[in-house]
Design a protein around this nucleic acid. Structure first.
Lengths: 192, 192
DNA sequence: GCGTTTGCCTAAAGCGTTTAGGCAAATTAG
DNA sequence: CTAATTTGCCTAAACGCTTTAGGCAAACGC
């Protein structure tokens, strides 16, 4: 009986592809086994369980995304960097909807801390160096940017912005303008 | 054999409660049947299938959320309205994480169009009347606000902002400041 | 070549979904 | 008030996904 050459690595990668094809929450051990022409039980030597598989896909996607983002911001600054960075998120989600959905899965704290999520935060901070923000405003801004990217991409992918004018690309461009303007004129807390 | 008094309505409501307790994607027909002390098959007279059940929960949550939001913005304007509106989203998600997750489920276009999602967009527009925005900027702003609320709440609920200073409440407050400032000084598109 | 490790297998149990068909309770009509 | 009809929940059964236990054979290390 020839061996299929399963590894955790290959399963994760194939799982990510599967996610892009059928949606992250239709990623199933059974389907994966089918694709490798292998019995389901065989997967369990390489992956603890379905949740473990999903987690690995999420981590893979976070890494890929961080790599792309890293490339994108290299040699750029200010609004240019901001836009390039944001576009990475949006483009990745459009090319790889399943992987993108995976990045939205909630990871347990230890896993999250060991993930590329940390790199994402660092890169966001790097971008903010082009603006005049000091702590704690920088952290607030990191969180705000994360929220916008995350939220926009989710809504767009869910079809929230289709079938209504103006088209999503236009809003995206203007969102970049808005964020740039906001970061250049970050408000000091009004007296409350 | 006494009847349990199942209705689509009651199932949906119980499903929503279940979602808040165990998480939206652990909402299962079996568990729901257990809670009503009824056989699983009995549910299928009231609900087409599990996806139908989930969709109904999502629609319920959207309605509840719209009702709350409607109350919150009544009699308020400007930043006051913006903050009250935003707080509704955040508070709802904290009180009802399962229902909130349901609102993030992607609905097919017809269902979405018939949902309270439409009311949400209208209310957001109403809030923007306190700022000086005309179309198409108003639509861009509606989408941006939606993205921020949606994204922030998701990330916060996933634990993204816990275990690091400053605390999430502080960022939330400053996010309101930032959005208010942004809307008051909405940038015109730079010459590109 | 031989022993050990490793990889994939068969088998089986458990649980969730969904459909088909049936009996009894509730409702409506005469 | 009883008879007919509708409605609500049932049993039964098929199917798919997950997960564990235990086995045989291929690959590898000496």
């Amino acid at each position: 009986m020839a061996r299929a050459g399963l590894t955790t690595e290959r399963l994760t990668r194939a799982g990510a592809d599967l996610a892009d094809e059928v949606g992250f929450d239709h990623v199933t051990a059974s389907e994966l086994a089918r694709r490798f022409d292998v019995k389901v039980a065989s997967l369990y030597s390489h992956v603890r369980n379905t949740h473990d598989l999903r987690t690995r896909i999420a981590l893979l996607a976070l890494e890929e995304l961080a790599d792309r983002a890293s490339d994108a911001v290299a040699g750029r600054a200010g609004k240019d960097a901001l836009t390039a960075f944001a576009n990475v998120y949006r483009d990745y989600a459009r090319e790889h909807p399943g992987r993108a959905a995976a990045t939205r899965m909630s990871l347990d704290p230890e896993t999250a801390a060991a993930s590329a999520g940390v790199r994402h935060a660092q890169m966001t901070r790097a971008i903010l160096r082009g603006y005049d923000l000091t702590e704690p405003d920088q952290t607030h801004a990191v969180r705000l940017l994360g929220s916008v990217f995350h939220g926009y991409v989710s809504l767009e992918l869910a079809g929230g912005f289709s079938h209504s004018a103006p088209d999503s690309q236009e809003t995206w461009t203007r969102t970049m303008d808005a964020l740039d303007a906001l970061l250049r004129n970050w408000p000091t807390p009004p007296t409350r």
